[in-house]
C-alpha cells in the first residue's frame, strides 16, 4: 500500500466491501493493487457468509434445560393466553439436522422419473417403515440419520417437488415450521414419530401436509 488514497480505499474495502463510497470505487478503476485487494476481500466475504450461516446443529446443544433466569409468571401466562405457547418449547435441532442432511443430497431434487412401487417398498423395508404415498415418488433412499436408517423421499406435488423424510423414531410434541439453509419446511407428528417436509420454494400448504401425513396413518 503506497498512497493515502490506497490506505483510505483499503480501510473501506476491508471493512465493508459491499458498501464502498464513490471515491473508493473511482480509485479501484485505476489501482490494480487495490482492485486485487478488493477481489480477495469479496471472495473472503463469500466464505465468511457461508461460515456464519452455520447449521444450528453445529452449535453444541445445551444440557437438559435448566433456565438460567426465570421468566416472570405473568409474562408466561400472558404469552400462553395469547397463543404464544410455542415460545416455551425449546426448538428442536431436528429441523436443522434434516435440512443439513437434505443439502448434501442436492441431486435428489432434480429427479423426474417416477419410481416403481417395488423400488419404494425396498427402501421402506430397509428402514423398517410403512408408508403409502398418494403422490409420485421420484427419489427414495434409506439414509443414515441420527443413528437410524430413515426413508428420504422426493415426491412430485402440485406445489412442486417436496422432500419427505419419515422420522418414525423421532418424537415431536407439535407441528413446527422452519426455515433452514434456504429450505422452508415443517415437522409434523405422524404415527409414533414424525415426518419432515421440505420445499425449496414456498412452505408446503396445510392440505399437502395432511396428505403426506395420511400416508403414515
Amino acid at each position: 500500500m503506497s498512497t493515502p488514497d490506497c490506505r483510505h480505499a483499503r480501510l473501506h474495502i476491508g471493512a465493508a466491501p459491499h458498501e464502498l463510497p464513490a471515491e473508493v470505487t473511482s480509485h479501484l478503476a485505476g489501482c490494480a493493487e487495490c482492485r486485487r485487494f478488493h477481489d480477495e476481500t469479496v471472495s473472503l466475504d463469500a466464505r465468511l457468509r457461508s461460515a456464519l450461516e452455520v447449521p444450528l446443529s453445529r452449535f453444541r446443544q445445551p444440557p437438559p434445560r435448566t433456565r438460567r433466569f426465570a421468566l416472570a409468571a405473568s409474562v408466561v401466562l400472558a404469552l400462553l393466553v395469547a397463543g404464544g405457547a410455542w415460545l416455551l418449547n425449546p426448538r428442536p435441532a431436528l429441523a436443522g439436522d434434516v435440512a443439513s442432511h437434505v443439502i448434501h443430497e442436492a441431486g435428489s431434487w432434480d429427479k423426474q422419473q417416477v419410481l416403481s412401487g417395488a423400488d419404494i417398498d425396498a427402501v421402506l423395508h430397509q428402514a423398517g417403515v410403512k408408508y403409502d404415498s398418494s403422490m409420485p415418488v421420484v427419489y427414495a433412499m434409506a439414509c443414515p440419520f441420527h443413528g437410524r436408517q430413515v426413508p428420504h423421499l422426493v415426491v412430485q406435488t402440485a406445489e412442486g417437488p417436496m422432500t419427505v423424510m419419515l422420522l418414525m423414531h423421532e418424537k415431536i410434541a407439535a407441528r413446527s415450521e422452519f426455515s433452514e439453509h434456504g429450505f422452508r419446511g415443517v415437522l409434523l407428528p405422524a404415527g409414533d414419530g414424525a415426518v419432515a417436509v421440505l420445499s425449496r420454494g414456498a412452505a408446503p400448504s396445510e392440505s399437502l401436509q395432511r396428505e403426506i401425513v395420511a400416508g403414515v396413518n
Partner: peptide
C-alpha cells in the same frame, strides 16, 4: 397474534444463529 407468531417462528432459526 397469528401472523406475528408465524413471522417469529420463521425467523427464529436465523435469530438463534
Amino acid at each position: 397474534a397469528a401472523p406475528f407468531t408465524r413471522l417469529l417462528e420463521m425467523l427464529r432459526p436465523d435469530l438463534l444463529r
